[in-house]
């Protein structure tokens, strides 16, 4: 618990933009994203599919597949810019300091290699460890995640149930005690009871070790369970950020409000209101607010300028022209 006192953010993402240069045109997936991941806390990145959440995650890992490219920005971890690191420096960082948990454990685990061997190769890719030392480490971690360690160690992924698989994948992601874990929709492929299990384990890891969690989800209820802070993404930008309590209790941005109204756990009077329209695939450099076509409050100014993510006081930020004048801009750096 004492590690919770350190205040410098675990990860600072500044003005990150990632584009995919496909044959049929450029896709503007992430368009100037700013956020800080507080140390030993959980930031939930929420939004619909196509909002740019996963691309943001892969950008942080520097694992954007071709024809994608990070075009601008800074990703600072312990003061170092990850975008300035060499390929082999990044390889050493991945798994060791910065880890990711993918949504479908059946796809993310190699079907023809035992869980034990996948954990062992991860350890041995980073550290000098004998086979027995690596096995010992693996068994301890599997046991900590409440798995029958010995059996899971010797199993192939297809021999495990869905929940066990995701816990095994979590063990794999956490085996080297990374500072940062990115969980990319880790519960989407699980049924509800198992979702709770994984969320509880994630929360437990947050409390127990010095772990900072970037929790990517479209599931608002899941976000509410683990997150300390919430960043809402839409059209490749962050439209609102604040503490979980504030954002879910008093959303500022029209998109956040619409998103909450469409969820059974947060809607008013039990009446679900789906967000009209569908999320845009941004194929051209845009001006104006990306949400304006689906926004009931849109005005002419919304089509002209991209609203800046402005400080609304009390550690809250929102990007909307319709809100009262912001006190100051986020780039001033106090949050």
């Amino acid at each position: 618990m004492q590690c919770k006192e350190k205040l410098s953010p675990a990860l600072i993402v500044k003005n990150l933009s990632t584009r995919f240069y496909t044959r049929s045109g450029t896709i503007y997936a992430v368009n100037g994203v700013n956020f800080e991941l507080p140390r030993n806390r959980c930031l939930a990145l929420i939004g619909e599919s196509g909002a740019g959440k996963s691309v943001t995650a892969l950008s942080i890992l520097r694992m954007i597949p071709k024809p994608g490219r990070i075009v601008s920005g800074e990703i600072r971890m312990n003061g170092d810019d990850l975008l300035a690191k060499s390929g082999s420096q990044m390889r050493k960082l991945r798994g060791e300091e910065l880890s990711i948990l993918f949504q479908d454990p059946l796809a993310a685990l190699n079907p023809v290699i035992t869980i034990g061997n996948q954990i062992r190769e991860t350890i041995q890719s980073h550290r000098r460890a004998s086979k027995s030392m690596a096995e010992e480490m693996a068994l301890v971690k599997l046991d900590a995640l409440k798995l029958p360690a010995k059996r899971v160690y010797n199993s192939f992924p297809f021999q495990l149930s869905g929940g066990m698989r995701q816990r095994a994948a979590l063990a794999l992601a956490l085996i080297l005690h990374p500072q940062i874990l990115i969980a990319d929709e880790p519960t989407s492929f699980l049924d509800v009871t198992l979702q709770g299990q994984i969320l509880a384990l994630l929360k437990n890891e947050l409390d127990r070790c010095c772990l900072s969690l970037l929790f990517i989800t479209h599931d608002l209820a899941a976000a509410a369970t683990v997150a300390d802070r919430v960043a809402v993404m839409y059209g490749g930008i962050i439209v609102e950020e604040g503490s979980m309590r504030d954002v879910f209790g008093h959303p500022f941005h029209p998109y956040t409000r619409a998103l909450l109204r469409s969820h059974p756990a947060f809607c008013r009077n039990g009446r679900l209101e789906p967000v009209p329209g569908s999320a845009p695939l941004i194929t051209e450099s845009f001006s104006g607010c990306p949400f304006r076509q689906r926004c009931s409050e849109a005005e002419t100014i919304c089509a002209e300028d991209v609203p800046p993510l402005a400080d609304r006081g009390g550690g809250r930020f929102a990007a909307c022209h319709k809100l009262p004048e912001p006190a100051k801009q986020i780039m001033d750096g106090s949050c």
Partner: peptide
């Protein structure tokens, strides 16, 4: 995905 996942764990490229 599992190749991407292995790379995301920093597994050596030869492996």
């Amino acid at each position: 995905e599992y190749v991407r996942a292995a790379r995301a764990r920093g597994v050596r490229e030869t492996l």
